[in-house]
Simulated assay, not measured.
Amino acid sequence: MNCVIPGGNLKIFGKSLHALCRFGDALHIEPSESKLSIRTVNMTKTAYAVVDFTPAFFQFYEVQDVEEEQTDCLKCKLPMKAMLNAFKNTSNLEKNVLTCKMKYSVDSESLTLKFRFKHEIIKTHIIYLLDGETLEELNLADKYSNMIATPSSIFQHALQNFQTTDNEISFDVFKNKITLRNYMQNDMCIKMLRSQITIHSTDFSKCDIGAETDIRFSLKLFRAAIGFAETFHLNVSVNFDTSGKPLIVSTKNDQTFEAAFVLSTLRLDDETQSTVSDKNTSKQIKIRTSSSRESVKRKIPTPTNNNETQIDTEENMLEITNMLLNDEDFPEVIENDAKRRKSVENGVKESDPEIVHTVFKRCFEMTLCPTELSQDVLAEDSDEES
Rank of each mutant, 00 (worst) to 15 (best):
S282Q: 10
N306C: 04
S295W: 13
T265R: 02
I320K: 05
S292P: 02
N307L: 10
E328I: 06
E328N: 05
V296W: 08
E350C: 12
I320E: 09
D337Q: 12
V344T: 09
N306H: 06
S291G: 09
E335L: 09
I285A: 11
D337I: 13
Q273K: 03
N307K: 11
T304E: 07
T304R: 10
I320S: 09
E335G: 08
E315C: 13
N316F: 10
E314N: 07
K252D: 02
D337F: 09
S351A: 07
N307T: 15
A338T: 15
N346V: 13
M317F: 10
K299N: 08
E335V: 05
N306M: 07
S274Y: 02
A260Q: 12
S343K: 01
V262F: 01
T265I: 01
T256Q: 12
V296M: 09
S291E: 13
Q284S: 11
S290A: 15
T321G: 04
F330R: 03
N280K: 00
E308H: 06
T281H: 05
P353T: 11
E271T: 14
E345Y: 12
P331R: 02
N307S: 14
I334S: 05
T313K: 12
N316L: 15
T313S: 11
P353Q: 15
T289A: 09
K299L: 03
L324N: 00
R288K: 04
A338V: 14
T321R: 00
T272Q: 05
F330M: 08
Q284D: 02
L324I: 14
I300M: 12
E294T: 13
D352Q: 14
K339T: 03
R288H: 06
T302R: 10
I287N: 06
D352R: 08
T289F: 15
K283G: 01
F261Q: 01
F330W: 04
V344R: 02
T309A: 15
T256H: 14
L318E: 01
D312K: 05
D278K: 00
D270F: 01
D270I: 05
N253A: 11
E271H: 07
E332D: 11
K252V: 02
R298E: 08
F257D: 01
T289P: 01
T302A: 08
S282K: 07
I311E: 03
Q255D: 07
A338G: 12
N326H: 14
R293G: 03
I300S: 06
